[in-house]
Design a protein around this nucleic acid. Structure first.
Lengths: 168, 168
DNA sequence: TATTTCGTTTTGTATTTACTAAACAGTCAA
DNA sequence: TTGACTGTTTAGTAAATACAAAACGAAATA
C-alpha cells in the first residue's frame, strides 16, 4: 500500500501540493500557513485521526508548532481531539461539520459589522440622508446576511442529509 | 458646525472609536488596521470625498501609509477615486456597492476552496467512501455556496432597490 | 528507579508587516 | 523661476508573527 497510509514514509507529490495549497489558502484567510497544512493532512490522511508526532513527521515540521496550531484549529472548530486507542497519545481528526462552524463564525463577523454600521448611523442621525446613505448600504447588507444566511446553511444541511440517505 | 466637517479640527470621541473599531475589525479580516481606519473615515466624513492629506490629518497618520492603504482599498473595491473639484488633489470616497464587491470576492475564495476539495477527492478516488467523506463535506459546502450565494446577493440588491424607491 | 515516548511550554530567531520619516516628482501660483 | 502645495516612492524601524530547537513534565515500560 503506497501513499500516506504508512507513517514515516514521505508523502506523494500531489498530496504535498494539496497540503501546501491549503496552507497558502489559510494565509489568505489570515491564518498561519502551518495550520492550513495540518488541516490538509487531516483531510486526506488514512486513517483520518493522526497524532501530533505523526503530523509533524509528515510535514517535516517541529512538534511545537504542530501542537500550537492544532490547538488553534481546535479552537476554531475545524478539527477535534478523539479518544486514543494507544495510551498517552493525542489524536486529532477533521471535525465533521467543521466547515459549517467556520461559516457560522464568518456570519458572526458580519453581525459585528452590522452593529458597527448601526453605531455609525447613530452618529449620523442628524445629518441629511445622502450622508447616511453609505452607512445604510452597509447596514442593509450585513443585516440581510444576518437574516438570511442561517437559512442558507440550513438548506445546505438538508441537502447533505438527503444526499447521504440517497447514497445509503 | 462641529464634528468632522471641518478639516483640521480633531474628531469627536465617538467618531474616533467608530473608526478605530473598524480598524480592529479589519485586522480580524486579515487586513491592515490603517486600511480599516481610512474606510471608517470615509464612511462618516462630510463631505464623503476626502483627500489623502485630509485623511492623514484626521487620523494623525503619515501621508505615505494613507496613500498606500487607500490604493489597497481601491484595489479591493471598497473605495474609489472621484474627480476632484480642486486641481491636483485626489479625492477618495466610499464606493457604492463596495460591500457587495467584497462579498463577491469572499465568494470567489469559497470557489477556490471548492476546487481544492475537488483535487483532494481526486487524490482519494481509490479509497473507501468513509475516507472520502471529509472531503465530500467540504466539497458539498463550497459548491453549495458557489451555487446559491449569488442568488442571495441578487435578493439583497432587489430588496435595496425596493427600499430606495419606497423612500423616494 | 531509570528510560523511553508522548505532548506542552519556553526561548530564541528570522521573516514579515505596518507604519513613519524623508526624499522625490508633478503641478499650480506667485 | 521659485516656492508651496499635492500625492508617491523609498528607506528605515519597531513590533508582531511563524516557526524551530530545546527544556520540561507526565505517564507507561522496562
Amino acid at each position: 500500500m503506497p501513499s500516506g497510509s504508512d507513517p514515516g514514509k514521505l508523502l506523494p507529490l500531489e498530496e504535498i501540493h494539496f497540503i501546501e495549497d491549503i496552507g497558502l489558502y489559510f494565509e489568505r484567510l489570515g491564518m498561519p500557513r502551518m495550520a492550513g497544512r495540518i488541516l490538509g493532512v487531516l483531510l486526506i490522511s488514512n486513517p483520518p485521526a493522526q497524532s501530533i508526532t505523526d503530523i509533524a513527521i509528515k510535514l517535516n515540521a517541529s512538534k511545537s508548532s504542530i501542537s500550537i496550531m492544532a490547538r488553534l484549529l481546535t479552537e476554531v472548530g475545524l478539527i477535534e481531539r478523539v479518544a486514543s486507542p494507544l495510551p498517552r497519545r493525542d489524536y486529532y481528526r477533521f471535525k465533521p461539520g467543521g466547515w459549517i462552524l467556520y461559516m457560522q463564525q464568518w456570519l458572526s463577523l458580519m453581525s459585528g459589522l452590522h452593529k458597527i454600521a448601526e453605531r455609525g448611523l447613530d452618529l449620523m442621525k442628524e445629518k441629511p440622508p445622502e450622508i447616511q446613505e453609505r452607512l445604510l448600504e452597509a447596514h442593509d447588507l450585513f443585516s440581510f446576511m444576518e437574516d438570511h444566511f442561517p437559512a442558507l446553511l440550513e438548506n445546505l444541511k438538508e441537502e447533505r442529509i438527503l444526499r447521504l440517505e440517497q447514497e445509503a
